[in-house]
């Protein structure tokens, strides 16, 4: 068994996603611990633009491209055949994927096919075989040592910095795409469209909770967000109450975020929400209940009626 690192790229056939850059940082750290070359796999269809972006990454030693019709939507049944094919060649000691919905869908399927365990959602590389990962919604951290010769790992993207995007010049190598299994097919997608930054990559996030009282009040948050280029999120309470759609949910069962500034408005601070945002650099809480647990993690707390504070905040930022 070789010692190279195979990283599965996150992309949509037209753009390499930021999650790839964070995952590559974990690969760089493994390489520093003695692992071999870093190889980036782009499985998709017509992903030339992605391949170009990948070829410019200075930390990548080799770009592998699997291009086929059955890979267009990156269904795990199909992509896992490509990955297993590569791993069975025996050159790799690691398979890394971002802990995105794509990566989480794919990596365990590959691990089982290779008969190895997986280390999920790592937040730290301790050594070549040992990782830190959160358990119990981040209420505990486990230091886990893997004994498999091939280590399958998913990477919590917010825990690793992004690697540099330019300066490299790597040749892309085409790899085989095995015949389609045909047990699954893509039907459609409803992606939410927004002018604002994506939650998982935004530098500033402003989120609303049950205290917003209704989805009709979210424009108050959006007005502030647009002044400072922030993404808009929500707590599970706000999503479950039907105020906003679930792709805005920040928390253990939603998106895990770690922006420079997180502004929690009308959010009490349930364990499940804190698990999704407590690694933010600076946390602000605005809540009319001064006993709300969110104040225990906030760097700056403002006890106030959010319906007065938000318009005032918008004006101050003007």
């Amino acid at each position: 068994m070789g010692n190279a690192i195979l990283v599965v790229a996150e992309h949509d056939n037209s753009q390499l996603k930021g999650a790839t850059l964070n995952t590559l940082q974990a690969a760089v750290e493994l390489k520093a611990q003695g692992a071999g070359a870093i190889e980036l796999l782009i499985a998709g269809q017509g992903s030339n633009a992605v391949v170009e972006q990948a070829a410019a990454l200075p930390d990548v030693d080799r770009v592998l491209v699997a291009d086929a019709g059955n890979l267009a939507h990156q269904l795990p049944e199909e992509v896992s055949s490509v990955v297993v094919n590569l791993l069975e060649g025996g050159d790799y000691g690691y398979l890394l994927a971002p802990a995105t919905t794509n990566g989480k869908n794919l990596a365990p399927r590959v691990a089982a096919l290779m008969d190895v365990a997986q280390v999920s959602d790592i937040t730290e590389v301790v050594s070549a075989d040992t990782f830190i990962r959160p358990i119990y919604a981040g209420n505990a951290l486990a230091k886990v040592q893997s004994h498999d010769a091939l280590k399958v790992v998913t990477v919590r993207t917010t825990a690793f910095a992004a690697v540099a995007e330019t300066g490299g010049a790597v040749e892309a190598t085409s790899v085989d795409a095995p015949a389609a299994l045909g047990v699954s097919s893509f039907v459609g997608e409803e992606l939410s469209v927004s002018e604002r930054p994506e939650l998982t990559s935004a530098r500033i996030i402003i989120s609303g909770g049950r205290g917003m009282q209704s989805g009709d009040n979210f424009p108050l948050l959006e007005a502030v967000a647009d002044k400072i280029g922030a993404a808009v999120g929500a707590s599970r309470a706000a999503v479950d109450s039907g105020f906003v759609s679930n792709d805005m949910q920040v928390g253990q069962t939603g998106k895990i975020v770690a922006p420079d500034l997180y502004i929690a408005v009308g959010i009490s601070g349930a364990i499940q929400h804190l698990a999704g945002m407590k690694d933010s650099k600076v946390i602000v809480a605005i809540n009319n209940d001064e006993e709300a647990p969110i104040f225990n993690v906030a760097d700056f707390g403002l006890v106030a009626d959010l319906f007065e504070a938000l318009p005032e905040l918008e004006k101050e930022l003007g």
Partner: peptide
């Protein structure tokens, strides 16, 4: 219908 990072995805499985 699957909950994915950017929204929802629908797949058909045998």
């Amino acid at each position: 219908t699957r909950e994915i990072d950017g929204g929802l995805q629908k797949v058909s499985l045998k």
